[in-house]
Simulated scan of single mutants.
Amino acid sequence: MAAPGGLAVDSLSRELLQSVVDVARAIFGAQASSVFLLDVEAYELVFHAVSGQGQRTLLGQRFPAGSGIAGWVVATGEPMLVDDLTHSAAFDRALAESTGYVPQSLLAAPLIQGDRVFGVLEVLDPSPRSRSNLESVDLLALFARQAAAALRIVIERHQLDGVRTSGGLDPDDRASARQLMYSLQRLLDTSV
């Protein structure tokens, strides 16, 4: 599967994306979290990682990049918090219904490289404490920026090394990933 810019989304990248949605879901006490990557040629957003609701059925599903809140985030490059989706003009209820899960609230942040949005990180139905806290949007945006950078590093390292592994991260990458997670945990501990 290819990510924006012709980058291959290999097993290392999938593992990284899955850890991103798992951590985002845990940080915000959410029902679900997902990463969409933009297929520029088809102008569609593709589910590349899902944690929680829809985890077993949504991977690989596509929808028009101009639809819904994820589409708005791609178009603007800005994060968004919607506390009550019943009153949001940007929310595409039919699209949500097609996934089998209709959230009541969400946080969304762009995955950005340089000045280009290549995906979206969403957190669905975060805990009430997170939903009404504007700082949560900032935290998710920071986490999305970190996730985008980490994904790019993994993909580039994989392409440069020409290494094909089926067993996940090599020891150096595993140590780097652990350090990234420890740094994130320290950030979270100081922000709560």
Rank of each mutant, 00 (worst) to 15 (best):
G5T: 08
G6I: 03
L7W: 08
A8P: 13
D10A: 14
R14T: 05
D22Y: 06
V23C: 13
A24S: 10
F28W: 04
A32S: 15
A32I: 00
S34L: 05
A42W: 01
A42D: 14
L45T: 00
L45S: 06
F47G: 02
V50D: 01
V50N: 01
L58G: 07
Q61H: 13
F63S: 00
A65C: 07
G66M: 05
S67R: 11
A70G: 09
V73Q: 01
V74S: 06
A75L: 13
T76R: 14
E78T: 03
D84R: 10
A90Y: 09
D92A: 14
E97Q: 13
P103Y: 02
Q113E: 14
F118Q: 01
G119K: 00
V120C: 09
E122I: 02
V123M: 06
V123Q: 02
D125K: 04
P128R: 09
R131Q: 02
N133T: 04
L134P: 05
L134R: 03
E135V: 10
S136M: 04
V137H: 02
L142W: 05
F143G: 00
A144Y: 00
R145C: 08
A149T: 09
L151A: 04
R152F: 12
I153W: 07
I155F: 10
R157L: 15
H158E: 13
L160I: 13
G162E: 11
R164P: 02
G167E: 09
G168C: 04
D170T: 03
P171L: 05
R174D: 12
S176Q: 12
S176T: 10
Q179T: 12
Y182S: 15
R186E: 11
L188Y: 02
T190F: 11
V192M: 12
V192S: 12
